[in-house]
Simulated assay, not measured.
Amino acid sequence: MLTLRQIHHIAVIGSDYQASKRFYCDILGFTLVEEFYREERDSWKADLALNGQYTLELFSFPIPPARQSRPEACGLRHLAFSVDDIAQSVAALELAGVGCEPVRVDPYTGKQFTFFSDPDGLPLELYESR
């Protein structure tokens, strides 16, 4: 059997690289570790860390096709982030102009969660960990 150690990173393609970089760094709190312009592909690549751990690769490509995500397309459904306080986290997002769905309660764990989207509509989730 294959032995996986952990998830190494998640890759996201943004239609507006600067807007996506601002969203993930300035609103969600990722740190820009490295950034490269790949001239041969007319593409940017940024390595982003969350709490010091390399977590996300952010890419740009000229005219990327729209993501097919609704209602429940096959493939990656969403990315979920653990937070200590769902109400405080929702308030911080809304203060930054990011709308969230109403907070719900997971019927299996009793934990609160909500969904929001990145600048390209990628579904993201906040899941209360305490």
Rank of each mutant, 00 (worst) to 15 (best):
E72H: 12
A87L: 13
P102H: 00
A96V: 09
C25N: 12
V83M: 04
P102E: 07
G121T: 04
R70H: 11
F36A: 12
F59S: 00
V83C: 13
Q18P: 03
I27K: 13
G97L: 10
Y17A: 03
E72D: 13
E39G: 13
T114K: 01
C74K: 06
P64F: 06
T109G: 12
E101Q: 14
T31D: 15
L32S: 04
F59A: 02
A91N: 05
E125F: 02
H9S: 13
F113M: 10
H78Q: 13
P65W: 02
F116V: 05
L95G: 01
L56E: 01
E57N: 13
Y37K: 11
R104K: 15
H78S: 10
K45E: 09
L28N: 07
E35I: 09
L58C: 03
L2I: 07
F36S: 13
L126R: 00
E94R: 15
E72M: 10
E39N: 13
Q18L: 14
L95A: 14
F81E: 09
A87Y: 11
A11P: 05
G110Y: 05
P65A: 05
K45V: 14
S129Q: 08
L50M: 13
V83G: 07
L93G: 01
L95Y: 02
A80W: 02
I7N: 04
E40R: 10
R67Q: 12
M1R: 03
L126M: 02
L93P: 01
G29P: 09
P102G: 02
G14V: 03
D106G: 11
G99I: 01
E40N: 11
G75Y: 08
S20K: 04
Q68C: 09
S89V: 11
Y24P: 08
E94C: 10
A66C: 01
S43T: 08
E34T: 12
D47S: 12
Q88N: 08
R41N: 07
D16G: 08
D42N: 15
F36W: 11
V33Q: 11
A92N: 15
P123D: 11
A11R: 06
F30W: 05
F113E: 11
L95R: 13
Y24K: 06
N51Q: 14
S43I: 02
L50Y: 14
V33C: 04
M1C: 01
G52H: 03
L48Q: 03
A87I: 09
P64G: 06
G97T: 08
A96I: 08
G99K: 13
G29H: 05
D47T: 15
Y108E: 15
S43R: 12
D42S: 15
E40I: 03
Y24W: 11
Y54P: 03
T3W: 04
A96H: 14
P123R: 14
H8N: 15
L56A: 01
I7L: 14
F59G: 00
V103E: 08
L56K: 00
T109N: 10
G75N: 08
F59P: 00
L2D: 02
I63G: 08
T31I: 09
D118L: 10
R77C: 08
V83P: 08
E35K: 13
R67C: 06
A91C: 01
S43F: 01
P64Q: 04
L4Q: 01
H78C: 10
G29Y: 06
A73W: 01
E57I: 07
Y108M: 15
Y108H: 14
A91T: 06
I86P: 00
I63N: 15
I63E: 14
P64A: 05
